Amino acid sequence: TPLTMVWGLVQSFRAAAKYRGGWKGLLEHMYTNGDYPFKFGTYMGCDAAGNRYYENRVDYPFGQHRWVEPGDIHNFDSSSIPPQWQGWMTSMNDAPPSQEDQLIQSKLEAVPSMCRSDAPVATNVGHQETLVNFHHLHNLTQVRSRGYNIGNPIVGLPPGVKDSYYTQPGSPYNDASIEKPVAIGDLDEAKGGGRPYKSDKWAERLMTAEEKEAAAKAQEEEAKRSIEAAQMAQRRRLAG
Rank of each mutant, 00 (worst) to 15 (best):
D188W: 13
E69F: 14
E69W: 10
D59Q: 08
A218F: 12
P97T: 10
F40D: 00
T42G: 01
E211W: 08
S80L: 04
A190W: 03
D101W: 05
G160W: 09
E220V: 06
Q99V: 09
E204N: 14
Y166S: 07
M30K: 06
Y36R: 05
G87A: 03
R237K: 14
A214E: 05
G21M: 06
C115F: 15
Q102N: 04
W85S: 02
N139P: 05
T90F: 08
P97R: 04
A95R: 02
A122R: 15
Y173E: 06
M5A: 13
I104V: 15
P97V: 09
G156N: 12
Y43C: 11
G193M: 11
A233R: 13
D186C: 10
S171I: 04
D47H: 12
S98G: 09
L131Q: 06
Q11A: 15
R20D: 00
Y165M: 10
P112D: 01
T32Q: 07
P112S: 07
W7T: 09
Y165L: 11
K39Y: 03
K24R: 12
A15I: 07
S199M: 10
A110Y: 12
A209S: 12
S171G: 05
T208Q: 02
G71I: 06
M92Q: 11
G22T: 11
E69T: 12
L157C: 04
K18G: 13
S226W: 06
L140P: 03
G21E: 01
G8M: 03
F134M: 04
R144T: 02
R236I: 14
R52W: 02
N139C: 13
N75S: 07
A15C: 01
G71R: 05
L3K: 09
I104M: 11
L9V: 13
E129N: 15
C115M: 10
E222I: 01
R14P: 00
Q168V: 14
G21K: 09
S226F: 05
G22K: 10
Q231D: 05
G34N: 10
S12K: 03
A122T: 13
R205L: 11
P158H: 02
N139Q: 08
R205V: 14
K162D: 01
D163P: 06
N33P: 01
S145K: 02
R52Y: 01
R195I: 07
G194W: 15
M5F: 08
R195F: 14
K191M: 01
D59L: 10
M89D: 00
H135I: 06
T167Q: 08
G71N: 05
V155F: 13
T1G: 04
K198V: 12
D72E: 07
Q234W: 15
Q142Y: 14
A15Q: 14
D47N: 10
S79E: 00
L137W: 15
M232E: 10
S226C: 04
A229Y: 03
I81E: 00
T90H: 04
E204C: 04
P61Q: 02
T141F: 00
R66Q: 06
V182L: 10
H127L: 12
L3S: 13
I178T: 11
V161E: 03
G45I: 03
Q11G: 07
E222K: 12
R52I: 02
Q234R: 15
K201A: 09
D175N: 10
R195L: 14
S78M: 06
F76S: 01
G25I: 13
P97E: 02
W67A: 07
F13P: 03
L137F: 15
